[in-house]
């Protein structure tokens, strides 16, 4: 799920960046530091959309660095248990398949793939129904439900299932 929220961060800036471009420097450093990172609480920071306010700087003893408290608006992405998500399949094997939704890695074990879908090995491994009408392979788009999440410093892992109503392939790359 995406959220647009306000976060705050203390930014340290070297004195060489001071001057009339101080604010721009601060913002570009903030983007570099924050975008693409994860936190367990808020999930993955997709993009900074604006600066709410930059507080008064405090000089750090001994170093000359200055710390600014910066409040910024950003878009975050965080998967939740029970959430239904659309993802792209990255790898299919006999254990199940792996899919990605942006930075989120999702594994769907073959226990959680409908029983009528069977694994077919070969150079394009896939799960197919017995009548061949539905096929999950690399680059397929699937709708899945998340049943477990774990957020690391840089990665988010999820366990998903497609053994439920209205879940499964939503777009087959071979027919597109």
């Amino acid at each position: 799920m995406f959220f647009h929220i306000v976060l705050e961060r203390n930014m340290q800036l070297h004195p060489r960046h001071f001057g009339r471009n101080l604010r721009e420097n601060l913002v570009s450093k903030l983007m570099k530091d924050v975008e693409g990172t994860c936190s367990g609480r808020h999930g993955f920071v997709v993009a900074i959309t604006g600066i709410e306010n930059v507080g008064k700087g405090l000089i750090r003893d001994g170093t000359g660095f200055v710390t600014f408290p910066v409040k910024y608006q950003c878009v975050v992405f965080r998967p939740f248990k029970g959430e239904v998500l659309e993802a792209v399949v990255t790898m299919v094997n006999k254990m199940g398949f792996f899919a990605e939704a942006g930075p989120v890695q999702i594994f769907v074990s073959n226990h959680l793939i409908p029983d009528d879908m069977e694994f077919q090995s070969g150079d394009m491994p896939n799960y197919t129904t017995s009548d061949g009408s539905v096929k999950i392979q690399k680059d397929s788009e699937v709708r899945l439900k998340i049943i477990g999440t774990r957020v690391d410093a840089t990665e988010i892992f999820c366990i998903g299932t497609i053994k439920d109503d209205f879940l499964g392939v939503i777009n087959d790359p071979t027919t597109a």
Binding site: F3, I5, V6, L7, E8, R9, N10, Q12, G40, R41, H42, L58, R60, D61, T67, P69, K71, F80, K81, G82, T149, R150, V151
Partner: peptide, 30 residues
């Protein structure tokens, strides 16, 4: 005054997370 490096969790973000957890009834790691 010495300032810490770690990002400050403002009260607004705490509220946000609490709200989410309550809304979704899901256990997040924290």
């Amino acid at each position: 005054s010495l300032v810490t490096d770690s990002p400050v969790h403002s009260s607004s973000s705490d509220d946000f997370a609490a709200l989410l957890d309550a809304e979704l009834e899901v256990g997040s790691s924290g």
